Deep mutational scan, measured.
Amino acid sequence: MATGGRRGAAAAPLLVAVAALLLGAAGHLYPGEVCPGMDIRNNLTRLHELENCSVIEGHLQILLMFKTRPEDFRDLSFPKLIMITDYLLLFRVYGLESLKDLFPNLTVIRGSRLFFNYALVIFEMVHLKELGLYNLMNITRGSVRIEKNNELCYLATIDWSRILDSVEDNYIVLNKDDNEECGDICPGTAKGKTNCPATVINGQFVERCWTHSHCQKVCPTICKSHGCTAEGLCCHSECLGNCSQPDDPTKCVACRNFYLDGRCVETCPPPYYHFQDWRCVNFSFCQDLHHKCKNSRRQGCHQYVIHNNKCIPECPSGYTMNSSNLLCTPCLGPCPKVCHLLEGEKTIDSVTSAQELRGCTVINGSLIINIRGGNNLAAELEANLGLIEEISGYLKIRRSYALVSLSFFRKLRLIRGETLEIGNYSFYALDNQNLRQLWDWSKHNLTITQGKLFFHYNPKLCLSEIHKMEEVSGTKGRQERNDIALKTNGDQASCENELLKFSYIRTSFDKI
């Protein structure tokens, strides 16, 4: 039985969820670079991206490699990797027998973001014989899940209580170790020597080791999670996991709180800001991140802002960003909400898709409305799209047979046209069989910064309504002859009103 693990408890099935942008060198404390989270699957090609990484700022997932063999891993080693800020997950990587050479110096898994409450997941690794993470000293947050690894031993010899604050939620089941077939031998045991430290858990006094050649490092209890030197002297209180010299914040392997210019500090002093819960960055760093993602459509890219001495992905609820200094300031009234469309555009074809934009005031991208039916549609669209004030790209209304009016965009005031449909149009209306009105132009103002209007096959939309939009939106004169079809717009509506004058002759039985 794995020490510190839980057996036999019912657990939810383990679901495996399925960018080499360097964020800056980590400095003297770390020998390499800070790398983003990685999802490495199918083959070993991307694994080489770990070569210079000291910190993975995010998670590391290595999974679904069915053609790899043990010899493929023999020359692979990433000794610079010290810390993973989120979680480490391995799933069905064939041929991998140990992690001792792959990650010989991995010391800390912070667990800032977890995989279903777990910071370390080893699942269905069919050839893994031992973990071998002999320098792993601290899992700051989260638990361990090690399950269905039929060859995995050296679990009962690990004292997880020396690595985690609590072992109650560890789930370590259905491994070879369960069948008591392992016969784990710690260093020196074969020669009758006791080389590794022994600890007591559940009444068992057991030597602690990761492999037959690597003991588990056990520091004096007084050192807590700070770690200790090879001689057993406690590291500085700002260290986490390990250090090369005692009581020196510049000799830590990793930091308990924050890293700044080669030393570990309790908090980031001005003019620095907390970033990702582990390091200090200056304003320029946060500003660069903001600008890199301002026009990016890459998933996970955030326009970072500053709030409460932190550089964070977005302002919290009730705050909006001051564009001059990136500071989050309290909103006066309802907060603006910028919604970034991942692929640059979004099609609204149902109430469900409209709900995804609920509360958005600025759309960074283009909207395509293609709704053919739905219950209580006008009210639903207004509830979900009615706060949109600005669209950076274009607005396209296409084959939306259920629409009679666009009044559900009740606050839309600006279409920038930074991206144009077919390279020309910022407003595009095609084949809307029941569209009769755009907006009530006596109450609604709309500016279209650039781009043209396109109207074709809107049989109940009168040309007068379209011409009014040209005047109000500032697009009059931009359109070419064929942009607004004269014969297919309003051709099934009563669009022309003329005053009919009647004269009559009164007659009676005795007068003409």
Rank of each mutant, 00 (worst) to 15 (best):
L50Y: 05
D277K: 07
S54R: 14
D169P: 12
S143I: 04
V200R: 10
G318W: 12
G183I: 07
E49L: 10
A190Y: 05
H48K: 04
L133S: 07
P316G: 02
C335W: 06
C315P: 04
R41T: 15
H212Q: 14
G227K: 06
G203K: 11
K100H: 15
Y304A: 04
G132S: 14
N309V: 04
R279F: 11
L326N: 13
I56V: 05
G203E: 11
E181S: 07
H59W: 04
Y94I: 13
S284N: 12
D178N: 13
A119Q: 01
S54L: 07
M321W: 13
H302K: 01
F73L: 07
P334N: 11
S323N: 02
Q61N: 03
I158H: 08
V108N: 15
K191H: 09
L128M: 09
E130A: 09
I222G: 14
D261T: 15
Q61A: 03
C293L: 06
L131V: 12
C315W: 03
T267R: 04
F103R: 01
L136G: 00
Q216F: 08
Q61S: 14
R297N: 11
N105F: 03
F116T: 09
Y304N: 10
N195D: 08
W160P: 01
S112E: 13
V281M: 03
T140E: 04
D277F: 05
F66I: 15
I56P: 00
P313D: 10
I84P: 00
D177A: 14
N175D: 13
F116V: 03
N150Y: 05
Y304E: 05
C196S: 09
A198F: 10
E238Q: 06
T250M: 07
A156W: 04
Y134S: 12
D288Y: 09
R162T: 06
Y319F: 14
N295L: 11
E51H: 13
E57V: 08
G227E: 02
G188H: 12
R263G: 12
Y304T: 14
I158Y: 08
N149W: 01
N322T: 04
L44Q: 03
R256T: 11
Q287S: 12
E49M: 08
S296H: 10
Q216W: 10
I62P: 00
S143A: 09
W210R: 08
I139D: 01
C215I: 14
P336D: 08
S284W: 09
C228E: 04
A198R: 08
H212D: 14
N179Y: 07
E130T: 05
P70K: 10
S166Y: 08
T140L: 05
N195Q: 09
L88H: 00
G32Q: 15
G203S: 09
C293A: 06
Y30P: 09
S213R: 05
G58F: 00
I146K: 01
V265Q: 02
C328R: 02
A190I: 05
L332F: 15
L64K: 03
H127F: 05
P269T: 14
S54E: 07
L174A: 13
D159N: 13
C209Y: 02
E97I: 12
E180W: 05
E207N: 01
F283L: 11
N42H: 09
G188N: 05
D39L: 07
L44F: 11
R298S: 12
I306Q: 08
G188F: 06
P36K: 07
